[in-house]
């Protein structure tokens, strides 16, 4: 069986963004999920609390970007740009969080690994879109 016939490259982006979204609800560091940390942080320091929602926001934006290609393949460049925006949220989150939690990185929970896997999938999804030739050029 030809793998290309059953594997749609857009699944990379879809899987990546879903992984990012659900990582929000699994444990990251110290056994807490990001959603739990968000709830705790809102009662202590609201200014940093929103940061814990960034993977969820990032995943949602990337999901919209991926669905954009499902809707119309011509929107692939737009999709990459929207993915840039979505991915930006995740980068900021990682940049703020990793230096704080670097000592506990070896004991990170499943949520952390899911988000990293999701981010890598989205990155490759973007590359794949840009490297794949547009089918509309095929016509004679």
């Amino acid at each position: 069986m030809n793998i290309k016939s059953i594997f749609d490259y857009r699944l990379l982006g879809l899987t990546g963004s879903i992984l990012l979204i659900i990582s929000q609800f699994f444990s990251w560091f110290s056994g807490y999920s990001l959603m739990e940390r968000y709830i705790i942080a809102t009662s202590v320091d609201i200014s940093n609390a929103f940061l814990y929602l960034f993977p969820l926001i990032s995943g949602s934006i990337c999901l919209i970007a991926t669905l954009l290609i499902y809707f119309k393949l011509e929107y692939r460049i737009n999709s990459v740009i929207v993915n840039f925006v979505g991915f930006g949220f995740f980068l900021i989150f990682i940049f703020e969080l990793i230096p704080q939690e670097i000592d506990y990185i070896t004991s990170a929970g499943i949520g952390f690994y899911m988000s990293i896997a999701g981010a890598i999938l989205i990155f490759f999804h973007n590359l794949n879109i840009l490297l794949t030739r547009e089918k509309s050029k095929e016509g004679s």
């Binding site: 460049i77 980068l91 940049f95 990793i98 230096p99 973007n126 840009l130 490297l131």
Partner: peptide
């Protein structure tokens, strides 16, 4: 081509992020 130009932008941008993350750690 727009795709190739975006690939360059994307690779350099995320490369820059990796540097800044490594520096912050």
């Amino acid at each position: 081509k727009v795709e190739n130009a975006l690939i360059i932008s994307l690779i350099i941008h995320y490369g820059g992020f990796s540097i800044i993350l490594a520096l912050s750690i």
